[in-house]
């Protein structure tokens, strides 16, 4: 399982949102996409999910171009996007059941992933009865129940408070270490990226500004000197050349888009 993003560009009505974005992700890699609000992170994720098509360039999964959404690429949405008319269990069963698995298997699969996120006790509740963090966990279980090769997550913990967020990060890592699917995780929190990722892609104004590789063993401590250094480095990169008054949507034609690969 490999993902190749090659020279991808996307504009909306003449406004360039993504420009010449290229990177590769290997199997089992945990990649964080980091950047300011409006820099095109969601757009990039939606392109990989197949919800929208690139204007330039190509996105290849195992050498095959992405033409539309597919069950091999599971998506976890920032607003969880659970089906409000289904119970928690029915939500998690959705993927396996539309794939046409036998009923017993569908249920078993759903319970397996509900247990993985620790919410099997809430199987018969409706999404509106759950807290934000629980909804997000159901969203993750629902995506995982389809056993996708790639898990795309768009700021899944963005709306959570800091404590819940940290707990969710630990839990996500635990699940990922167990399943070892490829994960692309969008965030605007540097700390989150440094804690989770094998590879951090920093997007800035629609371009890939830097790519960092981390091989720090997990679980990582936020106080680790090398991680602190990396955080400071990324912070500097994101803060520098911030033209005030500019919406952050325009691409700096002048900026050198050279990437830094910092192997640890």
């Amino acid at each position: 399982m490999s993902l190749v993003v090659a020279g991808v560009g996307k504009s909306y009505g003449g406004r360039v949102v993504l420009k010449d974005v290229s990177f590769q992700v290997g199997p089992h890699e945990f990649v964080c996409i980091l950047g300011h609000s409006g820099c095109g992170k969601s757009t990039l994720l939606n392109l990989i999910a197949g919800f929208i098509q690139p204007d330039q360039g190509e996105i290849l999964v195992d050498g095959v171009p992405v033409r539309g959404p597919d069950k091999s690429r599971g998506v976890v949405f920032q607003d969880h996007a659970l089906f409000p008319w289904y119970t928690v269990l029915q939500n998690v069963e959705f993927g396996p059941s539309v794939r046409g698995l036998p009923k017993g298997e569908v249920r078993a699969q759903a319970f397996r992933y509900l247990r993985m996120v620790g919410l099997e006790a809430y199987a018969d509740d409706y999404p509106h009865q759950l807290s934000g963090g629980m909804k997000q966990r159901i969203g993750i279980a629902r995506a995982l129940a389809n056993e996708p090769d790639i898990l795309l997550m768009d700021e899944p913990f963005g709306a959570l408070d800091i404590l819940t967020r940290e707990m969710m990060q630990r839990e996500l890592l635990r699940i990922w270490l167990e399943l070892k699917t490829m994960v692309l995780f969008v965030t605007h929190s540097i700390g989150e990226a440094v804690y989770l990722a094998d590879k951090i892609l920093v997007l800035k104004n629609g371009r890939l500004a830097a790519e960092y590789l981390l091989d720090e063993p997990r679980p990582r401590s936020a106080a680790h000197p090398r991680l602190l250094e990396l955080r400071a480095d990324i912070e500097r990169l994101l803060l520098e050349e911030e033209d005030p008054g500019e919406g952050g949507n325009l691409v700096h034609e002048t900026r050198d888009s050279g990437r830094r690969v910092v192997p640890f």
Binding site: A49, G50, F51, G68, P69, D70, K71, R73, G74, V75, F77, D79, A81, F83, W85, F94, G95, V98, R99, R142, A143, N146
Partner: peptide, 24 residues
């Protein structure tokens, strides 16, 4: 986003209709 999430879970056009559009 509900239609998108159904699509990425492998729903066909018929599933989108009966399981997303209609209940919604």
């Amino acid at each position: 986003t509900l239609i998108r999430s159904a699509l990425s879970l492998g729903a066909s056009g018929r599933h989108i209709f009966t399981r997303v559009m209609l209940p919604s």
